[in-house]
Amino acid sequence: MGTEQEVLDAIASGGECDDAELAALFDRLEPVDTALLIGTWRGGGFERSSESARLLTRMRWYGKRFVDADHVEPLLCRDEQGAVFSFEEMGLATLREVVFRGKSSTAMVYDQLPVVDHFRRLTDDVLLCVMDKKGEPADFFFHLTRVQAPTP
């Protein structure tokens, strides 16, 4: 079984993956463009012990909504009843073309946080992603899966 399939299996099962393996796979994958990102995506992390993972768990992070290049809702969360809402207190984001790890790609730039999310295509409906928190020693790897039906 190849690394790509192992990562897809981990996403499907809610399992964890090694950051070094994720970084190597990320570097091999194709960048994405803005058109691929448009829509709502359900997110998840590959580990649960970092501060980023704990924060997303506390927020009940659901995923991201890409309306267009100038309007991204980076923090879709669930309320106590399970309804999805856009947590805009931490700002919105835009999509910009950037070079990251040697490849030009569409990235999501937060408007109020020193964070840039980078995306690579595992399939048309599954992305491997890196949260690049400026000033932090380690990146946070996460995944996004396209939501086929409207968000409840």
Rank of each mutant, 00 (worst) to 15 (best):
I38F: 03
Q81Y: 01
R96K: 11
L75S: 06
F46H: 10
H71A: 09
E47M: 07
P74K: 13
R60N: 12
F85P: 04
E21N: 00
E21K: 10
V67F: 08
G43K: 02
A53R: 10
M90G: 08
Y62C: 09
W41G: 02
E97Q: 15
W41K: 00
S86V: 06
A83Q: 14
E30M: 03
D68P: 03
C77I: 15
R48F: 03
A53P: 06
V67C: 12
E21V: 03
S86T: 06
D27Q: 07
D33M: 01
L36S: 05
S49R: 13
L22Y: 00
F46I: 12
L29Y: 04
A53H: 00
R54W: 04
A93W: 03
E51C: 02
F26P: 04
G43M: 10
Y62H: 14
T57R: 07
F87R: 14
C77Q: 03
G63A: 07
L75K: 00
R54K: 15
F46V: 10
L92P: 04
D70F: 15
I38V: 15
L37E: 06
E88W: 01
L56V: 02
R58N: 10
D70M: 12
A20T: 09
L95P: 14
L92H: 09
T34A: 06
P74Q: 13
R42E: 10
F85W: 10
D79Q: 05
D27W: 08
D27G: 09
E97W: 02
V32F: 03
T94S: 15
F85M: 01
G91L: 05
M59Q: 12
A35Q: 05
E80H: 11
G63T: 12
L95D: 06
E89H: 06
F26T: 03
S50V: 11
E21M: 04
G39C: 07
S50H: 01
A35F: 05
T94M: 12
L36D: 01
A35R: 09
A23V: 00
A35M: 02
V84I: 09
W41F: 09
D68A: 05
E51L: 11
E80K: 09
L55E: 15
R58W: 04
R60M: 12
I38T: 13
T94R: 15
E97S: 14
T34P: 03
E51P: 01
F87L: 15
F66M: 11
K64S: 08
